[in-house]
Write a protein that binds this DNA or RNA. Structure first.
Lengths: 120, 120
DNA sequence: CCTATATTCAACCAAGTGGTTGAATACCAA
DNA sequence: TTGGTATTCAACCACTTGGTTGAATATAGG
């Protein structure tokens, strides 16, 4: 069995389990920003966003560089890649399922062709 | 912007953020099992595992079929696929980073060739 | 120096989590 | 019916989480 950096995966998955944090990542994917800039679009307090950023930082998803009173944050995608690698192990399962679904659709189409006009 | 089924993603990512639950999924990827069978390898109580399975079920990752007193569980990979789709949006970022890393290594090798023997 | 800005710290709250134990429920089988 | 097995329910605990408000800290700029 492949060895995973379990604790990192824990933190990464937990970090992206929150919609606000996913939105923060999406924003930073466009361009780096300071805490205040990141917080602007969100309906919660700056403090709340500051905490979210801390969670993302601890998951390794955000790199913070302090410049004077501003904290510049940028995305670090590396942990997302690790998460993706973990998920890929399950790809074969959903591929199988999609194959089955496709076969089912094809079968249904053939049936429809035979019994033309019937809707079941 | 792509539309996500936010609540499902929340539950899926939260579900896989726990190492025990990831291990449960890995087991079910081998073959379906009952609660007791699933619980056997783990050092926690059956009740604890039962709760984990409930979390996985609510995330849509496990399908439960009750047969008499046994609950047969099997993996449903569909939500993992959705999680993977979300992650894929960030692939370009880690691809970029890997490219940069590769360039860096190549550059370093060239430098090493020039200043032969120096270790920095 | 003074004031506005950027951010964190601290305390608090309600709700959720991961675990426990013990009891309840439901089923199978002798 | 009686007993063993499979599972959940219920209550509890310590800890975490996502949010708040208010104060503290540090920097920037007139």
């Amino acid at each position: 069995m492949v060895e995973y950096q379990t604790e990192l995966l824990d933190r990464v998955f937990a970090a992206v389990a929150d919609p606000t944090r996913r939105a923060i990542l999406a924003g930073l994917a466009q361009k780096p920003a300071t805490i205040t800039e990141i917080a602007r679009p969100f309906p919660v307090s700056l403090n709340a966003v500051s905490k979210h950023i801390l969670v993302l930082e601890r998951a390794g998803l955000i790199i913070r560089e302090v410049a004077g009173r501003e904290h510049h944050c940028r995305l670090d995608p590396a942990p997302l890649r690790k998460a993706s690698v973990w998920l890929e192990h399950y790809r074969k399962f959903w591929d199988l399922r999609l194959d089955a679904l496709e076969r089912h659709i094809i079968t249904r189409k053939k049936r429809e062709k035979r019994s033309h006009g019937r809707t079941d």
